[in-house]
């Protein structure tokens, strides 16, 4: 349920909803959701000074608490993960 909500929020905010992907893994009652969007849409889910990302995390935490689960949202930045050279 939480992964669907995150996908819904992200698809609503970006210009390329078809490129939104959410992966989830659960460990000791903590769900880690990894959000991937098109590189040019990163700003749409992060926002100025991270305001959008913060709002998304607050909402996701509330959604998780409803089912007694802790939710952590990671936003994948492919440019940074790509090895240099």
């Amino acid at each position: 349920m939480v992964e669907e909500l995150l996908a819904f929020l992200a698809r609503s905010l970006v210009n390329h909803p078809e490129r939104v992907a959410v992966e989830s893994r659960e460990e000791d009652g903590t769900v880690t959701l990894s959000l991937e969007v098109a590189p040019e849409d990163l700003g749409k889910v992060i926002g100025r000074q991270g305001r959008i990302a913060r709002a998304i995390r607050t909402v996701m935490k509330a959604a998780g608490a409803r089912d007694g689960r802790k939710v952590v949202v990671e936003i994948k930045d492919q440019a940074r993960e790509r090895p240099q050279g």
């Binding site: 929020l9 905010l13 305001r51 959008i52 913060r54 709002a55 998304i56 607050t58 909402v59 509330a62």
Partner: peptide, 8 residues
């Protein structure tokens, strides 16, 4: 949460 929702 309400504040975050409102912003989004």
């Amino acid at each position: 949460t309400l504040q975050a929702l409102q912003y989004l």
